[in-house]
Deep mutational scan, measured.
Amino acid sequence: KKKPLTQEQLEDARRLKAIYEKKKNELGLSQESVADKMGMGQSGVGALFNGINALNAYNAALLAKILKVSVEEFSP
């Protein structure tokens, strides 16, 4: 059984999803295209955005690059 995410991890996910929602049209992104760039399925990206799975440093760095932001913008 997976450990529930901490409040901090949930807040990171909320900020990440908000940045994605704000930038997806400008950058021409969908959850599917983000998933392709990350080498995972769309459901995996959804789980990161919705605070189901915790972000690790690798995925955080990859998402920051895809969204053209710094990791600190969603994970201070």
Rank of each mutant, 00 (worst) to 15 (best):
T6F: 00
L62T: 11
E73K: 08
F74M: 03
E11L: 11
G41S: 15
R14D: 07
L55F: 04
L29Q: 04
A35D: 03
E72L: 08
K2C: 06
N59D: 10
I19Q: 04
E73G: 00
S75P: 07
A57M: 12
T6A: 06
L63I: 10
A61M: 10
S70L: 00
G46V: 15
T6N: 11
G41K: 15
G46E: 15
D12H: 02
S75C: 09
A54Y: 05
K68S: 08
K2H: 13
L5D: 05
M40D: 06
L5S: 07
D12I: 10
V34Y: 01
I66T: 08
G41I: 11
D12P: 01
E26I: 13
D36S: 13
S70A: 11
S43Y: 12
G46F: 14
I19F: 02
K22D: 08
A54W: 01
K65S: 10
S33V: 14
I19H: 03
E72P: 08
L67W: 02
L5K: 02
M38C: 08
K65C: 04
N56Q: 05
D36H: 14
V34G: 01
E26L: 11
Q31F: 13
Q9P: 02
Y58M: 12
E8M: 08
A35W: 02
K3P: 10
K65A: 07
K3S: 13
E32K: 14
E73A: 08
E26M: 13
V69Y: 02
L10E: 10
K24I: 01
I52M: 11
E21L: 13
G28I: 03
A61Q: 14
L27Q: 07
A54S: 09
S33W: 09
A47I: 01
I19M: 05
S43L: 10
L5E: 08
Y58S: 14
R15H: 01
G28L: 06
G46Y: 15
K2G: 13
K23H: 02
K2L: 11
E32T: 11
I66D: 09
E26T: 11
Q31V: 13
L55Q: 05
L16N: 05
L5G: 07
N59P: 02
V69I: 06
K22Y: 08
I66F: 04
V69F: 01
L27E: 07
S75G: 03
G41T: 15
I52T: 14
T6D: 10
I52G: 09
E21T: 08
I66Y: 03
L29S: 03
K37E: 13
K37D: 09
N53F: 05
L29N: 02
Y58D: 15
L63H: 05
N50S: 09
K2Y: 12
Q31I: 15
A64E: 02
K2A: 09
L16Q: 05
E11M: 10
V34M: 11
I19T: 07
N25G: 14
L5H: 04
S75N: 06
V34N: 00
I19G: 03
L48H: 01
S43F: 07
A64N: 02
E26K: 10
S70I: 00
L63A: 07
Y20M: 08
Y58N: 15
G41M: 12
V34L: 13
K37C: 08
G44C: 13
E8D: 10
A35Y: 01
L29M: 05
S33D: 13
G46N: 15
F49W: 03
I66P: 10
D36T: 13
A54T: 06
A47Q: 11
E72I: 06
E11G: 05
G51N: 05
E11Q: 09
K68E: 14
E32Q: 14
L5A: 07
L67P: 10
R14G: 09
D12Y: 03
E72K: 12
N25Y: 12
A13F: 01
K17E: 01
N50T: 07
K3F: 13
A60I: 00
A18K: 11
M38L: 13
I19W: 00
L67V: 02
Y58R: 15
E11Y: 08
P4N: 15
L5N: 06
L62E: 13
L27R: 03
A54L: 01
E21G: 04
Q7M: 13
E8R: 07
S33I: 12
K22A: 13
S75W: 02
S75E: 01
E26H: 09
L16R: 03
Q31R: 12
D36M: 14
T6P: 07
M40P: 02
G28Q: 09
D12T: 12
A64P: 04
K23Q: 05
L62C: 11
N59W: 06
F49M: 13
Q9L: 01
V71I: 12
A35G: 10
